[in-house]
Design a protein around this nucleic acid. Structure first.
Lengths: 145, 145
DNA sequence: TATGCCTTTGATTTTCAATTTCAATTACGC
DNA sequence: GCGTAATTGAAATTGAAAATCAAAGGCATA
């Protein structure tokens, strides 16, 4: 899985004429071994611990590259922090975001997707992407100890 | 309609022990006479044109108050600008956002709402609010002249 | 109407994420 | 290796939003 993704990125980089650099390898490794929905800052700090030389800007730039390459997807929640999640080809899912503990639960619903397409069609609208976030309290936070 | 909203805000202010000020009146007037989905900056500039004394911070603060009072609703799209829309009691709607011309089309879909509730229930999740945005191109931007 | 308290205002500063800049470094084709 | 052009990273910049704080202004009371 990880190897596939690395290959995918290498292909993307080759196609775009990008160079292969140590930093991009490191950032990709860390990103791939990270949980879903990692924020840029979080990833940056993790990397910095073992690779102090790596700069802020490089992490930002590289995550954008991953997004272009289709490996990552940017998610902007309501806290002003950009997060990136692992993108699996074709997959689409939405999020339940717990405002109590910041947990993010993913879900997928074909019917909702279908309805969105219908709505868009009704307005002559061409969908590029969409985002559905449900904010509230997860089961644990609803019933505190 | 406008009078009703003013009354609603006055009642809210009274209940919270807030004072009635010239600035809040002005900002409310401008907000109510503005199109949907106005950004803070946009509103600020409009107000400033005829009331140069009014400060940035006051507009920010007052829009938050309107939101608390239930007159306005905050919407955060993908461009990092906070917008406020007119909130009508009970109503809920989502947005089609045209990335070509920045038009925002509102829609409502009960079935989607219902499905969201089902999904939340399945995860033991309590919904506070949600946000659904569909990004793409509107009919006009799809078929340029 | 005057008094005084306490909210509100607005210029300014601060914050914070994200981007830009630019000189130094590095990858890579020749 | 050489040279060029991409890449990096420290630092500066941006831009939205929040915080600060002295001055101004509401409003209850006398």
């Amino acid at each position: 899985m990880i190897l596939e993704k690395k290959k995918a990125f290498n292909e993307f980089a080759a196609a775009k004429g990008l160079r292969s650099t140590r930093q991009r390898d490191i950032i990709l490794d860390f990103f791939l071994s990270t949980h879903q929905h990692v924020s840029v800052e979080e990833l940056y700090l993790k990397i910095k611990a073992s690779h102090p030389g790596i700069g802020h800007a490089t992490v930002y730039r590289t995550l954008k590259l991953f997004t272009e390459a289709g490996l990552a997807r940017e998610i902007l929640l309501h806290d002003g922090q950009t997060r990136y999640e692992h993108a699996l080809a074709g997959e689409h899912h939405d999020h339940l975001v717990c405002t109590g503990c910041n947990a993010i639960i993913e879900f997928e619903d074909e019917t909702i997707e279908k309805l969105q397409k219908e709505i868009a069609a009704r307005h002559g609208f061409m969908i590029r992407r969409h985002k559905l976030e449900i904010y509230g309290l997860c089961a644990l936070c609803r019933a505190p100890r």
